Computed example of a mutant assay.
Amino acid sequence: MTQKVLKFAERHLQKVEKRQVPCFTIKEDKGAGLLECAIEEEPKDLEKLLEIFEKHVLSSGTHDNHGGYLGFVVGGGLYPAALGDYLAAVTNRFAVKASFFSCSGAVRMENMLIDWVAGLFDFPSEAAGNLTSGGSTAIVLALMTARHSKQLRGRDFVRVVVYMTDLCHVCVSKALTTIGLTEAVIRKVPMDDNFRMDPKILRQMIKEDKKVQIALKLHGKN
């Protein structure tokens, strides 16, 4: 099984290198043929499964591991990294900081990686961090951290102001719902010519909103 999968992966990587930009393929059935391969109790031939996988999964959509694909930030699809994922999946060690005793070496490995990334951005030595499965989870943790740092309670949520642009990723809105800030005030900040949030306007908006909050408190309103 290992040899068959490895050969399939190597053929795939060779095809990726030859693929031209744009790195997007549209198939008429959009992978619907996969539905004909039902999940059953009896095993199927591995080579047949790999063939189905290539035809109905890999043949359509974005080819994220192509060097020319710059649509958004994803994993690089690097072969050494894939082997690392393979080892992590096979060994299935429980690497959680809260359970250091379960696999101390894996926790140390994660801490080393976080420290290395922090160093790339010149963060102070006492900086801390966490590895997440992706951007959506990272946004949830970031917003929760901000909420806890201000010691916000449910009664405060209607006064919370969230500043974003019209091009803000949908994961931010989902994260606000996840952490209970659905009632927060959403303020859209204008962007510059490069579609970046304008910091000068943002500062002015924050200044104005603070004046409103002070005025409400003076009048005894929450």
Results as ranks from 00 to 15, higher is better:
2 T>Q: 14
6 L>K: 14
6 L>N: 13
8 F>Y: 12
8 F>L: 06
11 R>V: 09
12 H>Y: 15
12 H>L: 14
12 H>I: 08
13 L>N: 15
17 E>D: 15
17 E>T: 07
19 R>H: 13
20 Q>N: 12
21 V>K: 15
21 V>G: 10
23 C>I: 03
25 T>H: 13
25 T>P: 05
30 K>W: 08
32 A>L: 11
33 G>D: 02
35 L>D: 10
40 E>V: 07
40 E>Q: 11
44 K>Q: 10
44 K>M: 09
45 D>C: 07
47 E>L: 09
47 E>S: 13
48 K>P: 00
49 L>G: 01
55 K>M: 05
56 H>K: 04
56 H>N: 09
57 V>Y: 08
58 L>E: 01
59 S>G: 00
60 S>N: 04
63 H>A: 05
65 N>I: 09
65 N>H: 05
71 G>F: 06
71 G>I: 04
72 F>R: 06
73 V>C: 09
74 V>A: 14
76 G>M: 07
77 G>L: 04
79 Y>F: 15
81 A>R: 03
82 A>H: 10
83 L>A: 12
83 L>S: 06
83 L>C: 12
89 A>F: 13
90 V>P: 02
91 T>I: 10
91 T>P: 02
92 N>T: 08
92 N>E: 14
93 R>P: 02
98 A>K: 00
99 S>K: 00
99 S>W: 00
102 S>P: 02
102 S>T: 09
104 S>L: 07
106 A>S: 08
107 V>I: 03
107 V>W: 00
108 R>L: 04
110 E>C: 07
112 M>W: 10
114 I>N: 01
114 I>T: 02
118 A>F: 00
118 A>W: 03
122 D>C: 12
127 A>L: 01
131 L>V: 05
133 S>A: 11
134 G>C: 04
136 S>N: 14
137 T>N: 10
138 A>P: 02
141 L>N: 02
142 A>C: 09
143 L>K: 03
144 M>G: 08
144 M>P: 00
146 A>H: 03
148 H>F: 11
149 S>D: 10
151 Q>N: 15
151 Q>T: 06
152 L>V: 03
155 R>M: 06
157 F>R: 03
157 F>A: 01
160 V>W: 00
164 M>D: 00
164 M>R: 06
165 T>Y: 00
165 T>V: 01
166 D>K: 13
166 D>C: 08
168 C>Q: 13
170 V>N: 12
172 V>W: 01
175 A>P: 05
180 G>M: 04
181 L>R: 02
182 T>V: 12
183 E>C: 09
186 I>P: 05
187 R>T: 11
187 R>P: 02
188 K>V: 15
190 P>D: 12
191 M>G: 02
191 M>K: 08
194 N>E: 14
195 F>A: 13
196 R>A: 13
196 R>T: 12
197 M>H: 07
199 P>Y: 07
200 K>G: 14
200 K>A: 14
202 L>H: 07
203 R>G: 07
209 D>A: 10
209 D>P: 02
212 V>G: 05
212 V>C: 07
212 V>N: 08
213 Q>E: 15
214 I>Q: 15
214 I>F: 11
215 A>R: 14
215 A>E: 14
215 A>W: 08
216 L>F: 08
217 K>D: 14
218 L>A: 14
219 H>T: 11
222 N>Q: 12
222 N>A: 13
222 N>F: 12
